[in-house]
Design a protein around this nucleic acid. Structure first.
Length: 275
DNA sequence: CGGTGGACCTGCTGGC
DNA sequence: TGCCAGCAGGTCCACC
């Protein structure tokens, strides 16, 4: 479910609502996530204060007062919810953190593709799972030159290239579709075939789409879709130009949008505008 | 090495 | 009404 804008929406919400609070309880109700939850390590967080909330790509970072960081990934279907202490647990509330005396922070994930781990800041930055993540989309390191270099010799569809977290962090299926539309580039083009001008347009489009989506509080496709920790949906879905709009007229040229499959993922584009 | 396809899970929808 | 195939916002791994 969540790509960069959704995780960023959650991060901002938590930063204003629960930053500075102490973890007073941890209950692991189901440890079977993609990477099994280490119950004893999580329980060892009792007494720790949450001092800052960060984000790296689609990873939510909860920085603690002992120098460690809890890393949360929401997979395809993960949610984070804030609620009063003692509210009935939902079916897929796998981990429940008690904060202070009367608040709970719950990790809910029906498909269990997510993960929660605890790392030293240093290992996360250097040798950890995050080491191979590419630059943040808004980082200065994401230059046209960098993209061109990484794409050199790569025959993979440019959409797959964009969704590769080792190239750029945080771009998933929705926003890859949207950025390619905005840049006027066909998703199936080999990555190495883009000109410098096309990379410039694409880089600009990625940033523009992500910035707009963050501003709208993310994308909530269905009633059961993305929610911030207060249960509120985002509004970017009404701005989606191509994702989920198969057969609808292109907003630029009126031609019916097409759905196809690229690397097993639904891919939407305008055959006339995207070359 | 690069590229493809499958696996991991649950839940919902649409067709028959 | 029931059943089954197909689909879903993400990664990781095995294989050619």
């Amino acid at each position: 479910m969540p790509e960069l804008p959704e995780v960023e929406t959650i991060r901002r919400y938590l930063a204003t609502k629960v930053c500075g609070m102490v973890i007073t309880g941890v209950e692991v109700r189901d440890q079977r996530l993609r990477q099994p939850v280490d119950t004893s390590v999580l329980r060892g967080l009792v007494g720790r204060r949450m001092v800052a909330f960060g984000r790296r790509g689609k990873y939510l970072l909860v920085h603690l007062d002992d120098g460690r960081t809890m890393v949360v990934h929401l997979g395809m279907s993960g949610h984070v919810q804030l609620c009063p202490r003692g509210a009935p647990a939902g079916k897929h509330d796998h981990v429940v953190f008690t904060l202070g005396s009367d608040t709970e922070l719950r990790y809910n994930d029906p498909r269990r593709f997510g993960a929660i781990l605890v790392v030293d800041d240093k290992t996360w930055g250097d040798g950890g799972a995050c080491a191979c993540l590419g630059p943040e989309p808004f980082d200065d390191a994401l230059t046209v030159h960098y993209l061109q270099e990484r794409a050199a010799g790569r025959r993979v569809p440019v959409k797959v290239f964009l969704m590769d977290g080792r190239v750029v962090a945080g771009v998933g299926n929705i926003y890859a579709n949207e950025a390619l539309y905005k840049a006027g580039i066909n998703p199936q083009r080999p990555a190495c075939s883009l000109s410098e001008g096309e990379w410039r347009r694409l880089r600009r489009a990625i940033r523009g789409v992500l910035r707009a989506a963050i501003k709208q509080g993310g994308t909530t496709l269905l009633d059961e879709g993305f929610r911030n920790p207060a249960g509120e949906g985002g509004y970017f879905q009404v701005r989606l130009a191509v994702y989920g709009r198969e057969g609808s007229p292109c907003r630029r040229c009126g031609f019916p949008l097409v759905r196809t499959v690229v690397a097993r993922r639904s891919t939407y584009y305008c055959p006339r505008c995207q070359r």
